[in-house]
Design a protein around this nucleic acid. Structure first.
Lengths: 213, 213
DNA sequence: TGTACATCAGTGAACGCGCGTTCACTGATGTAC
DNA sequence: TGTACATCAGTGAACGCGCGTTCACTGATGTAC
């Protein structure tokens, strides 16, 4: 039974959205094409009218999750003063809430390991999502120069690492300690940085000076 | 054809070792029980003489990988002065070599995402491996007090995050930047900490003071 | 030390199951006239 | 605007495949006497 163009587009969008939720919640391999279609009350045969294969769906689901996650961050930080942005970002990203609800959270944290063994389209989509996460860090932890960029990459890696490990461990106390430690670590680095101007920070950092040989 | 006790024990050990390598290389779901047995030229039926089910193998494989990884670290840092331990640990953990060879590397970084959806035995074994990774950080980044412990948890999360993300992205330059940024970030924090005694560091850290309410 | 027998590591085929993908078909939608 | 026909979204069954697990069997090892 053919559907109108609007219905078709809406169905496709709904499939991607369901997939992005299910993949984040259960992992890519644990969610079948039939599972995804079932969310909309559809059967599996129709899937291939919309997508070439499962890999294409995964790639698009990652993109959709990245966009949703990015929009959520934008909405949650709207109106925040630049100095409060980092704290707000960390509060959200490193929350118990985020750990307990991967299906609505950051696809980078939810799918990083699944993606490592994935196809090229999936990895490319994941890399775009990772870049978007890094943009969030750029905004919250601003600053020019290689030192500032390194600081943001370090922060992003720690944030993802903390959430991934907090989700993987069966010890809630350890999970909580990881989240709190990364949050404070990044906050303190951020405050240290904004307290002293970059030039002075560089001049007094023996480590940075040594590294620059 | 029954085997001697020594043979049986050796076979069991070999199966676990092969599994620990294959799971880290390809992920848990992507490696079948038959794949693991095939490494020793065995057929799948014999597997259940050694293990109750695949989950038990996964749990033991994580433990074996953790031990191997820990021993490798101990051997590679033997004789290093306390002040050089952190640099050596970071050099190894955040290396291209480590990223390209998950099968011989840290099981926490290789399996963190697989484990998040695993059974209780697997998660418990993973948590023990994570604790062992944290011990490595304790040794390399020593210091008493809650602040020092947070610093180590932060470092461990960032290390795992960097390796996981470096492996997942298809952009080698981004992977390299992540590894380098985390390495420098932890090194600099470590040097900053050892340069100023903890008491002074606390007194001058407005962030820490504010946090302690 | 020798013998009879129980044990059990490993074989290889089978089990039921769920997967991704294909396909003939249906019938409403879109289009050409 | 009306009609005839092509298109194609979705169905539901089937395809081949690989998975974890089970099981009857084999024959060397371990053990009891």
């Amino acid at each position: 039974m053919r559907r109108s163009r609007e219905d078709t587009a809406a169905t496709r969008q709904a499939i991607v959205k369901d997939a992005s939720r299910l993949f984040r919640a259960r992992g890519i391999d644990a969610v079948s094409v039939a599972d995804v279609m079932g969310e909309q009350g559809l059967t599996v045969g129709g899937f291939y009218r919309h997508f070439a294969d499962k890999e294409q769906l995964v790639a698009e689901a990652i993109a959709a999750a990245s966009e949703q996650s990015s929009d959520g961050h934008a909405a949650a930080t709207k109106g925040y003063a630049p100095g409060k942005l980092a704290a707000r970002m960390l509060e959200r990203y490193l929350s118990k809430e985020h750990c307990e609800h991967p299906e609505a959270g950051c696809p980078v944290a939810a799918l990083c390991s699944d993606v490592a063994h994935g196809g090229p389209a999936v990895r490319a989509s994941f890399t775009r999502a990772l870049r978007r996460l890094l943009q969030m860090a750029d905004e919250a932890l601003p600053g020019d120069g290689a030192r500032a960029r390194e600081r943001r990459l370090h922060a992003a890696a720690a944030m993802v690492g903390a959430v991934v490990l907090a989700r993987a461990t069966d010890d809630p106390a350890l999970a909580d300690a990881l989240l709190r430690s990364v949050r404070r670590g990044i906050e303190q680095a951020s405050e240290r940085e904004s307290a002293s101007p970059p030039r002075r920070a560089r001049a007094t950092s023996s480590a940075a000076a040594r590294r620059r040989r």
